[in-house]
């Protein structure tokens, strides 16, 4: 019995050590990125109306993904913007940000060109162009970028 209890103590110590190691190995979560959009619409993505989330707003293109995947159009970074939206930025496309809403469990952090960002039933997509005052304005996206996002590489 004395020996069994000794083993229990060893397992307990090992458990705590392993837990500490496992917790410290987890990467830090990608920080939320908030941006100021020049067009100050009254109803925006992330708002709630009658206990329902607003997923897209004026300026978003709605695409029926039907469970398909949205891919990174260039090498870049995916950052959370709200509970429903992520922002994609790339050093290859200065002055622009892409906002993708409606994807479930998005792949946050650094991504390669063509790597999956996430999938969902619908994608709500906006292109944002940087303004001299540091705000971002919603512009009409080109088909070329949408094709890169929707076509499997």
């Amino acid at each position: 019995m004395v020996r069994i209890i000794g083993i229990e103590k060893c397992i307990g110590g090992l458990a705590i050590a392993l837990c500490t190691t496992a917790c410290s190995l987890n990467p830090s979560p990608e920080p939320m990125r908030q941006i100021q959009i020049q067009q100050n619409w009254a109803i925006k993505p992330g708002d709630r109306i009658a206990d329902h989330f607003v997923v897209a707003g004026l300026g978003d293109i709605s695409i029926r993904l039907g469970g398909d995947t949205a891919y990174a159009p260039f090498a870049g970074r995916v950052q959370p913007n709200s509970s429903e939206c992520v922002l994609f930025s790339s050093p290859d496309v200065p002055a622009y940000l892409f906002r993708l809403c409606g994807l479930s469990k998005p792949n946050l952090g650094e991504v390669q060109a063509g790597e999956a960002i996430g999938s969902g039933d619908y994608l709500y997509f906006a292109t944002l162009r940087k303004q001299p005052d540091g705000t971002w304005t919603i512009v009409e996206p080109a088909k070329d970028i949408l094709e890169r996002i929707l076509k499997s590489p």
Partner: peptide, 25 residues
């Protein structure tokens, strides 16, 4: 024996450690 001499809180801590390692893994 150790079983009798160990305070109950130690046993609880050991059990908690096992549960935590299971979760961590």
């Amino acid at each position: 024996s150790d079983l009798e001499s160990d305070p109950p809180i130690l046993k609880v801590l050991l059990l908690l450690g096992l549960v935590l390692v299971g979760f961590a893994l």
